[in-house]
């Protein structure tokens, strides 16, 4: 049956940035599709640590293996150690999901160089670091899936979004370059372009959320599960010929002028 081609049974995944609602849904969707899933935070905050632990609990409740790690995703040694721990404790790494997300909005003239670097470090350099670390086991297996989560702001600009937009667009084209670099190795690299999703930090203000919903073609935000389901497809054997793509899941927001 065609559904069986989507199964992730026997595969091991790592989701970096599993503390937010979208990262959590991504990890749970991969586990529901049959994968064992390790998860991590993006920053070393206690709030993220608690959320990542609770995500790991959900994975265990699905009878899948996994663990939660607290890391700074912009730290080379943290990322290398995390990937090493996945290999040591879970035996292999088939699917890497980079759901790094450090939202940031400020007028350009007010952004300090330190802030700019931190936004680019976590959102973009962090993805480079984890792709680099995961490439070694995946290239020796001759098989692997990398899925980078980007925002609509990778494709469209936003007032006060300079640092975040630049970093997100960087991840989008990093995806294309890596897809080509590894095209003949069995390793695919794709991005998911996630639309405005329930629970996003940028949508905490009720009034701006309602305004946004009125503007969206479907008049509603995405549920995190609606983004995560596509990741399960991209992670599966069914998507072996799909690489270098940005798969947008944005409810038609990019169809809008």
């Amino acid at each position: 049956m065609v559904q069986q081609q989507f199964s992730l049974s026997g595969k091991t995944a790592l989701v970096i940035g599993a503390a937010g609602p979208l990262g959590r849904a991504l990890a749970v969707a991969l586990a529901e599709a049959g994968a064992d899933v390790a998860v991590s935070t993006t920053t070393r905050s206690q709030q993220e640590e608690v959320a990542a632990n609770s995500c790991a609990n959900e994975i265990w409740a699905l009878k899948r293996k996994g663990f939660a790690a607290t890391i700074d995703a912009a730290s080379e040694s943290d990322v290398d150690n995390l990937v090493q721990r996945v290999i040591t404790e879970m035996g292999r790494l088939d699917v890497l999901v980079n759901a790094h997300d450090l939202p940031f909005a400020k007028p350009l003239t007010e952004i300090t160089p330190e802030e700019w670097r931190r936004v680019v470090d976590v959102n973009l350099t962090g993805v480079y670091l984890s792709c680099r670390a995961a490439a070694q086991p995946m290239l020796s297996q001759g098989d692997g899936r990398m899925i980078n989560i980007v925002s609509l702001l990778a494709e469209r600009g936003m007032v006060n979004g300079a640092a975040y937009c630049a970093a997100q667009a960087g991840v989008m084209n990093l995806t294309r370059a890596l897809a080509l670099e590894w095209a003949k190795t069995g390793l695919t690299v794709n991005a998911i372009g996630a639309g405005w999703t329930e629970g996003m930090a940028l949508l905490a203000d009720e009034e701006s959320r309602r305004k946004l919903e009125r503007y969206l073609p479907g008049k509603r935000l995405a549920k995190p599960e609606e983004i995560a389901g596509i990741a399960a497809y991209l992670a599966s054997d069914a998507a072996a010929y799909l690489t270098g793509q940005v798969v947008w899941i944005e409810g038609g927001a990019l169809s809008h002028v």
Binding site: R176, I230, L242, T243, G244, V247, W248
Partner: peptide
């Protein structure tokens, strides 16, 4: 095709899924 016909793609709209072995990326 099944993905785009199913509830799994309930928030995809106006979007393109290209299955082409990487040609469009470079």
């Amino acid at each position: 095709c099944v993905l785009l016909a199913s509830d799994l793609s309930s928030y995809m709209n106006g979007d393109i899924l290209a299955l082409e072995g990487g040609g469009l990326s470079g």
